[in-house]
Amino acid sequence: MDSSELYHVKQQFVLGAYKTVVDLTLPDPNSPDFIPTLIYKARSHIALNDPKAALQLVPADSENVALKAVTSLAKFVAAEGTSNSESALEELRDLSVEIEGDDVEGTDRDKATVRVLAGTAFARAGELEEALETLGADTEDLEAVAVIVQIYLSINRPDLAKKEYERSKRWAEDDLLLQLIESIIGLVTGKDEYHNPYTFYTEQLGNPSLSSPHVLTARGVTRILRNEFPEAQSDLEEALTQHTDAETLAAFAVASGLSSTKKGETDANELWTRLSSEYPRHPSVVDIAKKSTLFDEAMAKYTVPPLAASAA
């Protein structure tokens, strides 16, 4: 069982309060919590898309496999889209092989972290099969399960995701992360009118021990899915006052666009413009650009006859 400080850090991290985790002061280096906390902190930097800060945080000469993995993931994220990313992936591959051996230093926890981080990187690189393999089919680490579940969902296999969740329910505590996993599945399948994610995020918003704009965003998205657009708008607007990120912005645009008001439409268009200029790499922006080309291609199949106009 984790100490309560670490439990708390983990909880913040799981709920996406990366800012809070980043701002944490590290415990004493001799404390058993030091390395796990450091790892969460570094991972939060990476999650905030700031891999450089993560690299600065983690000592380069560390022997700990988990720390090495964090470094590699940070390098990978930093180099994504360039040719250097492959070398970072190779490092992670080596680490995943290394932890399988008996002679390696490091606790089970460190090994699990290595798998999660490697799996994350592989999934980011589109190597889903490799990611699944690294994470292991019978893992008893909930973080790994979360990654596996999301991968399954991303390839439209909610059935497998559900199976994975049911499996972990058998051994996992009534853990926050398990509830989160259940919610993610709920978001995709829409079971019981998105009841699970909705209550989960609402409950976490009421959690006095943390505040995470991510949770607000998530509830906003859930409300969009539940067709509660004005409520969603208010959630997302509040989230934006706390913290601006692409996801919230994109969701806000969707909610505004669906609100069936004139103002909503104009807002939506403004938000999209803002989103595409500030976050040109966000998937929704990329997706729309692709669809725009698709439209032009499809349109080209139709010949437009000349406009009928009065001969006079």
């Binding site: 991290f13 996406g16 990366y18 991972r43 939060s44 990476i46 999650a47 993931l73 994220v77 994350t120 999934a123 980011r124 979360a146 990654v147 999301q150 991968i151 969902l153 991303s154 989160l180 919610s183 993610i184 978001l187 995709v188 829409g190 965003t217 998530a218 998205v221 969009i224 899915l225 067709n227 996801e247 994109a250 969701a251 645009a253 969707v254 666009g257 669906l258 439409e265 939506a268 268009n269 999209w272 966000h282 998937p283 929704s284 997706d287 729309i288 669809k291 725009s292 439209f295």
Partner: peptide, 25 residues
């Protein structure tokens, strides 16, 4: 384009993974 983009939203529940595309019904 506006109908298409209004029908989809993204959320990344797990740190550093690419966001999940969710579909509004």
């Amino acid at each position: 384009l506006s109908i298409y983009r209004s029908s989809h939203t993204f959320l990344s529940p797990v740190a550093s993974l690419p966001p999940l595309q969710l579909h509004v019904r």
